Simulated assay, not measured.
Amino acid sequence: MSVIGNILWFVFAGLWQGLSWILVGCLWCITIVGIPGGLQCFKMAGLAFLPFGKEVEYGGGVPSALANIVWLIFGGIFLALEALVNGVILCITIVGIPFGLQCFKQAKLALMPFGAEVLPKS
């Protein structure tokens, strides 16, 4: 079932959200200081492309919290707003609700990507 969900997700929302993560990651990688942020963006782009069958665990402690504050100012708000708007649009129909919920998961992740781990759903 997650394969079908991922295919439909990719067509209706995943392509745009994944490309946004990659674009932001490329912008972060322009400077040497921003490379850790860019690498995190590339990791999260994989989840944005195919989110069904995966879950996110948050943690990381104080270093991750500080990195998330910097991230929020320089990139997270735009990705979170994109996912939030996409989720609201997808939740208009009953069929789109599971996809809208995935968008809301992406929005939360866009606000706090550092310290987050993407794991297969158990």
Rank of each mutant, 00 (worst) to 15 (best):
M1W: 01
V3N: 14
I4S: 12
G5N: 11
G5D: 11
G5V: 12
N6D: 15
I7D: 10
I7L: 15
L8K: 06
W9E: 09
V11R: 02
V11M: 04
V11F: 06
F12C: 12
A13W: 05
A13P: 06
L15E: 10
W16G: 13
S20M: 13
S20G: 10
W21T: 07
I22Q: 02
I22A: 05
I22N: 05
I22K: 08
L23P: 08
L23R: 14
V24M: 13
V24F: 13
C26K: 10
I30R: 03
T31P: 00
I32R: 06
V33I: 15
G34K: 08
I35A: 03
I35Y: 00
P36S: 11
G37E: 01
L39A: 11
L39C: 11
L39V: 08
Q40F: 00
Q40M: 12
C41D: 05
C41E: 04
C41A: 08
C41H: 02
C41F: 08
K43A: 13
M44Q: 15
A45K: 03
A48M: 04
F49M: 10
F49R: 07
L50A: 11
K54W: 15
K54A: 14
E55K: 05
V56P: 01
Y58W: 15
Y58T: 14
G59Q: 06
G59R: 07
G61V: 07
G61D: 10
V62T: 10
L66P: 04
A67M: 15
A67H: 02
N68C: 13
N68A: 14
I69Q: 02
L72M: 12
L72Y: 04
I73T: 06
F74D: 00
F74M: 03
G75T: 03
G75R: 09
G76C: 03
I77P: 08
I77Q: 10
F78H: 11
F78M: 15
L79I: 03
A80R: 09
L81V: 02
E82V: 00
E82S: 07
A83K: 01
A83P: 08
A83V: 00
V85E: 02
G87E: 09
V88Y: 14
V88L: 11
V88F: 14
V88M: 07
I89K: 07
L90F: 03
C91G: 01
I92D: 08
I94N: 05
I97K: 09
I97M: 11
I97Y: 13
F99R: 01
G100P: 12
G100V: 04
L101W: 13
C103T: 00
C103I: 00
F104Q: 03
Q106E: 09
A107K: 01
A107H: 00
A110M: 05
L111W: 14
L111C: 13
M112W: 12
F114W: 00
F114P: 13
V118E: 09
V118Y: 13
L119R: 15
S122D: 11
S122I: 08
